[in-house]
Amino acid sequence: MSRDLTGAREVLDGDDVARALTRIAHEVVERNKGATDLVLLGIPKRGVPLAHRLAQRISAVEGIEVPVGALDVTMYRDDLRLRPARALEHTEIPPGGVDDRIVVLVDDVLFSGRTIRAALTALEDIGRPRAVRLVVLVDRGHRQLPIRADHVGKNIPTSLAESVKVRLTESDGHDGVLLDKPAREQREPAETAASEVQP
């Protein structure tokens, strides 16, 4: 299946997603020289299940439990005033906290970079990690801030008019990444960044 009913093109299927996550898990462990001191924080919504999957894979490799949590960045966004106030997602910091840990932020799509900027600020109010790394399933380009991912599932060159939709079993029933070209006029990435992960 390469196109869904809406005409979106599938750029990653379920197997691709699984393989990308397995590779990233290994990369994270390799970079960290083990799983010690790692804390994975998923950015809601779809970053959270991705963080859990990564943690499972890392545990399977390293044989130790990796703390996983969720970091909602809504309250730290710089585009709050552009839209009606939205419901907050759960923030769940693992009991050990983040002080002096290696925090790995996990998100589904890296676009403008503003979500990650917000996550870094949010993290500041929670504690002082030794280092912060970033994992994304898809990097679609069009950065507006000097931010890059440490580990990327797949780089997908896109036009601004296109949207990237990540589907995960936990929230959507199946895994996959779709590239969609809506018939609407081009929008600023700042406005579309959140809507494409919460269609």
Binding site: D72, M75, Y76, L80, A87, L88, E89, H90, T91, E92, I93, T121, E124, D125, I126, G127
Partner: peptide, 24 residues
């Protein structure tokens, strides 16, 4: 329900953390 759920998150975001202030 939205207000009550949001209040839950506010409690979660401010209870027992270093900086109780949010920049929102």
């Amino acid at each position: 329900t939205l207000v009550l759920d949001t209040a839950d998150e506010m409690a979660r975001l401010t209870e027992g953390r270093a900086v109780k202030k949010l920049p929102t």
